[in-house]
């Protein structure tokens, strides 16, 4: 029949258009693909190969790491600091994102600007600002001394506390932004329905809002944890003797000892451990996710 053949032709034409569109989309992805492929994957592969070719195939750098007590200490510090930073960011960031998602647009915009201003300020500037605040003769200690609350300056930096303050501050936007974008998408009528059915504000938050915001929690925690694990400047400046993180050890091996092979092995191990944690965490987080939220 003429009618059906015409529609077949239209369908074929449409398919052709779609295919061309698809091809065009791939073409548009090409620059990003090349960018990441050349500038990220190639150096990553190079790092892995540096860690096992020195100058012939060897696993001695890995053997060295796994036999070195310093390696385990530093790995432990790295994960301790990353975990505490993530918890700190979540505890501080969740209420901020919650407020932003519920505030009037003008207020939400204002809060967003505050979050972004700190996001845009250089990491180094922010870390040095904390040094001015936390120092022995810094703003906070001087204030507390002047008021008479303390008689000796408190040790606020060159210790774990200083590292955590600096890192939580620097990484807070990475928690707030994913949380906010997920919370913004939560249908508020669900909360109203819960309250309508007799749940108080606390229960409706606990049983409805909190589970629905879980993807944001997962995303934010992952981002913060993974960035923390590779951190280097803030712990180097605000940390004390025992707060050495993997990034610092790697930097030391490269810049002081020119030991590229060992540094590459350390970087590879950190990468693998973080990747494994990521997979494990994703598994746990998806299992916990209630069916409605995924």
């Amino acid at each position: 029949m003429p009618g059906s053949s015409a529609s077949a032709v239209t369908a074929a034409l449409l398919r052709g258009v779609e295919r061309r569109e698809e091809a065009r989309r791939w073409l548009l992805v090409l620059p990003a693909g090349l960018f990441v492929g050349v500038l990220l994957f190639f150096p990553l592969l190079r790092i892995v190969s540096l860690s096992v070719w020195d100058p012939i195939f060897t696993l001695r750098h890995y053997g060295h790491a796994f036999q070195d007590p310093v390696f385990y200490r530093v790995l432990g510090v790295t994960f301790k600091v990353s975990l505490l930073t993530t918890v700190g960011c979540l505890v501080l960031g969740y209420p901020v994102a919650h407020l932003m998602a519920h505030a009037r647009p003008a207020v939400a915009n204002f809060l967003m600007t505050l979050v972004l201003v700190s996001f845009w300020t250089s990491l180094l500037v922010r870390t040095y600002a904390w040094m001015v605040l936390l120092g022995r003769r810094g703003v906070i200690n001087n204030l507390l001394l002047a008021v008479g609350l303390i008689s000796e300056p408190l040790p606020l930096m060159y210790n774990l506390f200083g590292v955590l303050v600096g890192m939580v501050h620097v990484l807070l936007p990475f928690m707030i932004l994913p949380l906010y974008s997920v919370m913004k998408g939560i249908d508020r009528s669900l909360m109203l329905a819960a309250q309508n059915l007799g749940a108080g504000p606390f229960r409706s938050f606990l049983w409805v809002f909190l589970p629905l915001s879980f993807p944001g929690v997962t995303g934010g925690c992952l981002l913060v944890f993974m960035i923390s694990a590779g951190y280097f400047i803030t712990p180097a400046l605000l940390g004390g003797r025992t707060d050495m993180m993997m990034g610092q050890l790697i930097e030391l091996e490269v810049s002081q000892l020119l030991n590229w092979g060992y540094a590459s092995a350390l970087a590879t191990i950190l990468f693998v451990v973080v990747a494994l944690l990521f997979l494990a965490y994703r598994r746990v987080a998806t299992l916990r996710l209630p069916s409605g939220a995924s």
């Binding site: 070195d68 007590p69 310093v70 530093v74 003797r241 050495m244 050890l249 000892l257």
Partner: peptide
């Protein structure tokens, strides 16, 4: 001795 000393130093620091 740099490499050896650096390792000893770090072990001591930590």
């Amino acid at each position: 001795n740099l490499v050896k000393m650096e390792e000893r130093w770090n072990a001591w620091l930590l």
